[in-house]
Design a protein around this nucleic acid. Structure first.
Length: 830
DNA sequence: ATCTTGCGGGG
DNA sequence: GTGTACGCAAGAT
């Protein structure tokens, strides 16, 4: 490989120790570190037992003065220092955390500091943290080890070199204080799936199952254990059951402690039952174990969807189906029915559970690459990087390592000076329907502005953040190019795509890091405001210049613009205006042609419908994507929008009339008007508040003879005739099995269809049809959605009716660059 | 209309 | 061994 041209920045990003194959690190505060490695390309595994010198950063040495001669500068004889000595090195520069203090045993070091601090403050200080972040920085032991050595995980390994095991619990319910584990599906690192089951009732049977599970995991000896919602369900459930049944959960690698908690903002809160909202019980934790890494695919899904925003939900089945990981014969069983199905047809549940672990493995491979690649860079455990937020979770450790490596004193967190943070621009130029739509946007606007105008945190005297963003952008282009060259489906392509994804996460979080005042070490509200100010200015300039070239602006948000072009324009014309405007922008700000659509309904800011030239209608924003909307209404809205966007107002009317008539003739199955809700109150809780306030879901249960239900249960409810609340019984197949969701219009057996027709007619108009209002002139709207059974004396024809577009503002004024000069402005200086 | 609370994932 | 998740919709007032 060509030697890197920026050795310093590359050390900041990648560390410096070349040790290959590290798959897990565990360090104890007493200075012992355990490093598990694999030989790249083989399954050979070995453990290195090392010692490291635990360290902390302190703002002052005063609390260690009581040590006398046992406190000495680094490098003075005797080298190495005598056991028990505390050594220090003063870092250079203005940062507050300027003494790097270390000792052979981290606990002795901490207690020496705490002893001094307790004396100085005349009160017992129990923990370094209690000194405050401006006085001390103490990383977790593994991170101390990784920062000090410059090692990182996974050097020279590819994703599939890791031995990964997935397991999935099947339980009789969601509450581990009451419910039991009766089956575990497990996929071993070679891809073989199996199930373990209880063979006896009661505690003995379940305890035996847990023992077999632990033994099986130890035998398979995976580096990584994963599942969907692993930290939120399987591990806490397993932990509680094992405690109750007195089964030791020795899931880690030999000779070290078993399952532990680690604090985490995103961890599970097992005892957060509905109603149970006592603050102490809300403490969240993640699980950790020496020698293996626990990876939750739900984290990868969230991270993916944060950018992509195209997933129907974050559940395993929905995501797997969406990403094409599910087979056509995927076994599906509603969660609440799994145990009863198991009693009648165990093979079906075995199949279901095996498919769960197979999909979890597929999901881990497809979406887990970014975390794997981050672990090659940042000095943290892989499992922590997998659930970390990118700013405090990844960038900050990189910054800390950069400063310590460079011998520079590190700034402490600083609260803001009261300046408030200003945000991005959002302009709505026109509402209604337009045709010939173009979307243009700037890729990674904020990091581009940071680079273009050299806007970085004031206290970052090494300029490490900007330097790292620069290197990341360059190296990401390289990774993308390599990925493209590698054969599709190859490990090489997966690796480079993963690196690119990881870098994208870091690049795009640099701005968030800057703006998180009081939360991140280098936050700088003035720099962040300068970034958004430049962003607003550029967006305004783009809008004005586009408008000058004859397009109709529709909506602009942060870094992108939707506009309509004249009928006669070709795609070449569309691309030409985008590149003309792009040429007016600073070099690092790349305005790109992002897509073209046949038509758009602009409803409200960030709420619109797009009709592509080919393919299904796209709906964006809460107005169009309500999660609990009744299926009949969603179906109507989709069809009506397609007609409206095609310019066929008459067909919108027909769609509406059909929908109303179908309701009035009760041709619509009850399922289609029902909404799924989740029960959050227990029967007794609801009965306590029922007098003050009646709630449809619970009324539906009570009036249908159900006085018992469990928290978290999901039911489908509807409004029945006579003001009653309807409960949709779960549809069953002939075998008495739960039926899959019926296709729209599919007959649904003995459906009473006793829903309140006029309520649903009103809902259709007031809630669903209302979302088309911007696209029609008021009189046309009234005509289109007039009640078909109440013909008025004068019914206007819709033959000439056309969708309308209403301009609500023009791109004029200072925010559109009429006064400000953007291009060629001097670089920002703090 | 505005404020508050609870949800997500999992069986 | 800390948390401050976080962004949104339904419910409460």
């Amino acid at each position: 490989m060509v030697p890197p041209p920026h050795p310093l920045e590359d050390e900041w990003l990648w560390g410096w120790d070349p040790t290959p194959g590290i798959v897990s690190v565990w360090a104890e505060p007493d200075g012992r570190a355990f490093i598990w490695k694999r030989q790249p390309g083989t399954h050979a595994r070995l453990r290195e037992d090392a010692r490291y010198r635990p360290w902390v950063l302190l703002a002052s040495l005063q609390d260690l003065e009581h040590l006398g001669d046992a406190l000495r500068p680094e490098g003075l004889p005797p080298v190495p220092p005598v056991p028990g000595a505390v050594t220090y090195r003063e870092l250079e520069g203005p940062g507050a955390l300027r003494f790097l203090v270390s000792a052979e045993d981290g606990r002795a070091l901490a207690s020496a500091v705490l002893k001094g601090a307790s004396k100085r403050l005349d009160q017992r200080v129990g923990h370094l943290r209690d000194l405050g972040p401006a006085a001390a920085l103490a990383l977790p032991p593994e991170e101390q080890y990784l920062v000090a050595t410059g090692r990182t995980y996974f050097r020279d390994l590819v994703f599939d070199d890791l031995r990964r095991l997935q397991f999935d619990l099947e339980t009789t319910g969601l509450d581990p204080s009451r419910d039991r584990i009766f089956l575990v599906a497990l996929r071993d690192p070679d891809g073989r799936s199996e199930t373990l089951e209880v063979t006896a009732d009661g505690d003995a049977g379940e305890a035996d199952l847990l023992r077999r599970l632990v033994a099986r995991i130890r035998e398979a000896d995976p580096d990584v254990v994963e599942n969907h919602n692993l930290h939120g369900f399987d591990l806490p459930f397993l932990d509680q059951r094992a405690k109750r049944l007195n089964v030791p959960l020795a899931l880690g690698r030999a000779g070290l402690p078993g399952l532990r908690h680690r604090p985490s903002a995103r961890g599970a809160a097992l005892n957060r039952g509905p109603g149970g909202r006592d603050a102490d019980a809300m403490r969240r934790a993640r699980y950790t174990v020496p020698g293996r890494e626990f990876i939750d695919t739900l984290d990868a899904v969230r991270r993916h969807d944060f950018a992509a925003r195209d997933l129907p939900g974050h559940g395993l089945k929905a995501v797997a189906r969406h990403l094409g990981l599910s087979g056509p014969d995927r076994e599906l069983i509603p969660g609440a029915r799994i145990h009863e199905v198991f009693l009648k047809d165990p093979e079906r549940v075995r199949r279901y559970a095996r498919e769960d672990v197979t999909e979890a493995a597929g999901l881990a491979h497809l979406l887990g690459g970014a975390a794997f690649a981050l672990a090659r860079m940042a000095p943290r455990r892989y499992e922590r990087l997998a659930d970390a937020g990118p700013a405090t979770g990844v960038l900050d450790p990189l910054m800390v390592r950069a400063y310590v490596r460079s011998g520079a004193a590190l700034p402490a967190h600083e609260s803001g000076d009261g300046t408030s943070h200003s945000g991005a621009a959002l302009h709505l130029f026109a509402t209604g329907v337009a045709r010939h739509i173009v979307k243009a946007d700037v890729a990674s606007l904020y990091p581009s502005l940071m680079r273009q105008y050299r806007i970085g945190p004031k206290r970052d005297r090494l300029n490490a953040l900007l330097a790292m963003v620069d290197r990341l952008v360059d190296q990401r282009l390289d990774a993308k190019a390599r990925a493209k060259k590698a054969p599709p489906g190859s490990a090489e392509r997966h690796t480079h795509e993963a690196i690119s994804a990881a870098m994208k996460i870091l690049i795009n979080s640099a701005y968030g890091y800057l703006g998180a005042v009081g939360l991140t070490r280098f936050s700088d509200v003035h720099a962040a405001n300068e970034v958004t100010r430049r962003g607003r200015e550029l967006l305004g300039l783009m809008c004005r210049e586009l408008a000058h070239r004859g397009v109709t602006l529709l909506e602009a948000d942060t870094d992108g613009v939707y506009f309509a072009v004249p009928e006669a324009w070709t795609e070449t014309d569309e691309r030409r205006v985008v590149s003309e405007v792009a040429a007016l922008l600073p070099p690092r700000v790349k305005l790109e042609f992002d897509g073209r659509y046949a038509a758009m309904l602009s409803h409200e800011p960030k709420n619109y419908a797009l009709q592509p030239y080919a393919g299904p209608l796209l709906l964006r924003g809460v107005a169009f994507r309500s999660s609990r909307a009744e299926p009949y209404g969603e179906d109507f809205l989709r069809r009506a929008l397609q007609h409206l966007l095609a310019g066929d107002v008459r067909a919108v009317r027909d769609t509406y009339v059909d929908a109303v008539m179908a309701l009035r003739r009760r041709q619509v199955p009850t399922f289609e008007v029902s909404a799924q809700v989740r029960l959050t109150k227990s029967p007794s809780q609801y009965l306590a508040t029922r007098k003050q306030r009646r709630e449809l879901p619970y009324e539906a249960l009570l009036t249908n003879g159900r006085e018992h239900w469990s928290l978290g249960e999901r039911v489908r409810i509807y409004r029945a005739t006579g003001g009653r609340a309807g409960l949709l019984p779960e549809a069953l197949t002939e075998d008495g099995e739960p039926a899959p969701r019926p296709a729209p219009g599919e007959p649904t057996g003995d459906d009473a269809r006793d829903y309140d027709v006029e309520y649903y007619v009103r809902l259709l108009k007031d809630s669903f049809a209302a979302r088309l209002a911007r696209g029609l002139a008021p009189e046309d709207f009234a005509t289109v959605f007039a009640d078909p059974d109440q013909p008025s004396l004068f019914t206007p024809s819709l033959a000439d009716a056309r969708p309308v577009l209403t301009v609500v503002r023009a791109p004029r004024g200072p925010e559109f660059g009429e006064d400000a000069q953007v291009v060629g402005a001097p670089p920002f200086s703090p």
